[in-house]
């Protein structure tokens, strides 16, 4: 394995993880706010369903996604309509990373929003701001640290994603082979040196992301007076 391959693999991993996090973000924020503010029958069930991808074996999640993306699956008509074949593309790797990272992100947003006293939103309304303006001027700024913290956790989870990605995106060198998949295939090929080198890069990336999450944002959250 040459250094250029390590770099392109690292770059792909970062791109996949960042795209996955950014795509999940608006949905997780909307869902987190909804769950933090609404009570309805079946809320616990929905909460469990959201958390499911976090505890299921990632391979099982991958198999489920593969089924949904396949031209023979229940959504075949939808993919035909769009003319898209996502399985075994970088997009599939992004999708897999999004699904496994989403529960972490949603939960963190939900907790951040639930900690904001409703009075702030009510005062904002009486000062002439409609619900949308209130959300963007009050709720989101007050919950931003939780949102950021969740984003970093989801990003870190996406960096190390293996099982679901392997199934739905395959291990295609230069196309879908991220660091985690690269380590596996180098071990399979018997190149322990390369595998350890990739482990080292993974270690540094994950450490940096976790340090950012825990050391900086995490401390801010604990110090926050809400």
């Amino acid at each position: 394995m040459v250094a250029g391959e390590v770099w392109s693999m690292t770059w792909l991993t970062l791109r996949v993880a960042a795209t996955a996090t950014l795509l999940s973000l608006p949905i997780a924020i909307a869902m987190g706010y909804f769950m933090a503010r609404k009570d309805f029958p079946g809320k616990s069930l929905l909460q469990a369903l959201i958390a499911l991808p976090m505890v299921l074996p990632p391979v099982a999640v991958g198999l489920g996604l593969l089924y949904l993306l396949s031209p023979q699956g229940p959504l075949a008509w939808f993919w035909d309509l769009l003319g898209l074949r996502l399985a075994f593309t970088p997009a599939a790797a992004v999708l897999a990373a999004s699904v496994v990272g989403f529960p972490l992100l949603e939960r963190s947003c939900e907790q951040a929003f639930a900690a904001i006293p409703r009075r702030f939103e009510q005062v904002s309304r009486t000062l002439g701001r409609n619900p949308w303006a209130t959300f963007f001027r009050v709720v989101l700024p007050l919950g931003q640290r939780g949102v950021l913290y969740g984003s970093l956790l989801a990003f870190t989870r996406a960096l190390g994603e293996f099982g679901a990605t392997a199934l739905v995106a395959g291990i295609l060198p230069g196309r879908t082979e991220t660091l985690a998949l690269g380590i596996y295939s180098q071990v399979q090929l018997g190149d322990d040196t390369a595998a350890f080198a990739l482990c080292g890069v993974s270690f540094l990336l994950s450490l940096a992301a976790l340090l950012a999450a825990e050391g900086w944002v995490g401390r801010e959250i604990k110090g926050q007076r809400l």
């Binding site: 006293p117 702030f120 005062v123 904002s124 309304r125 009486t126 701001r129």
Partner: peptide
Amino acid sequence: APEKRGLGWVPQESTLFPHLSVRQNLSF
């Protein structure tokens, strides 16, 4: 809607927006 009632409300507990300065609170 609450935002259309034009009422100035001072609640019992402090509800100044903690992410804004005094001036920004006043300008809200």
